Simulated scan of single mutants.
Amino acid sequence: MRKFYIALFSLFFFVSLVGCQSKAEDPLEFSGETLSWSATITLYPVESSKETAQINLNYLGDKIESVGDFKINLDTSNNENGVAVRDARLDKEGKFKEKVKLEASEGIMKSKHLILTVKWNDQSEDIVLKVK
């Protein structure tokens, strides 16, 4: 009977370790909104010291064609520069979607928020993205 309890405890311990381990690989999602833009950034698990970030940006204004080319910069709450995209364009629905690779750092994974700066037509807005 004692061997049965040891085996049962070992199995429970193993399952709890595997369960905790899989949660570390879940994507981390940040989102936020300003008057002109809404954004969601999803960080996927590390692949060879690089994070994959899915950037979804939506223009909330009426005149999508007036935006033209724009730039975005992503910074962590520790003022680390995560990624920069130049000469981006919105689709017909006013959306921008792109997957980018960025250096994996504890600053990004431990950030409580990210700051996405969008620059277009001599305008600039900082979108504070908070963890969902």
Rank of each mutant, 00 (worst) to 15 (best):
F13G: 04
L114A: 05
D69W: 04
F70Q: 04
K92I: 05
I55W: 00
V67Y: 08
S49R: 10
N79S: 03
A24G: 02
D75G: 01
C20M: 09
L102D: 04
V118R: 04
L129H: 09
K63Q: 12
S10Y: 00
V131K: 11
F13N: 11
Q123K: 13
P45N: 01
A39C: 11
K112S: 15
G94H: 14
D126E: 15
S22V: 13
L102Y: 02
L28H: 05
D122S: 13
L57N: 10
E33V: 03
D75F: 10
K99A: 02
G61C: 06
D62C: 10
A104P: 03
L129F: 10
E29Y: 00
E25V: 05
M109I: 14
N78Q: 07
K63E: 15
F70L: 08
K99M: 11
T52F: 02
V18S: 05
L60I: 05
I108K: 05
V15K: 03
F4T: 15
L116M: 12
E98M: 08
K112E: 14
L35T: 13
P27N: 02
L11T: 13
L129R: 02
E29N: 01
F12L: 13
S48I: 04
E51C: 01
K132S: 12
W37N: 12
V131H: 04
K71Q: 11
A88L: 01
K3R: 09
F14E: 09
P45H: 01
R2V: 10
V85N: 09
K97R: 12
K63G: 05
M109G: 15
L74V: 14
S48N: 07
D26N: 05
Q123P: 00
E29T: 04
T52A: 01
D26K: 00
A39S: 14
I108L: 15
S16D: 02
F30V: 00
K119Q: 13
G82Q: 01
S10N: 06
L60Q: 15
E106P: 07
G19C: 06
F9R: 08
L8G: 11
L43R: 07
Q21T: 05
S38N: 09
I72A: 10
F12K: 02
K110W: 09
C20K: 06
I108N: 07
S16Y: 06
S31K: 06
S105Q: 04
L114Q: 07
R86H: 12
K132L: 08
L28D: 02
V85K: 04
T42E: 06
L35C: 11
S10F: 00
T42K: 02
Y5F: 12
F96Q: 10
A104D: 08
S38Q: 10
E33D: 12
V128A: 13
K23Y: 07
E80G: 12
T42A: 10
F13H: 06
Y44R: 03
V83F: 03
V85R: 10
T42I: 04
T40Q: 11
L17Y: 03
I64H: 14
V46M: 03
N81Y: 01
D126A: 11
S77F: 07
E65R: 09
L28M: 07
M109P: 07
K99V: 01
L102Q: 07
D26C: 03
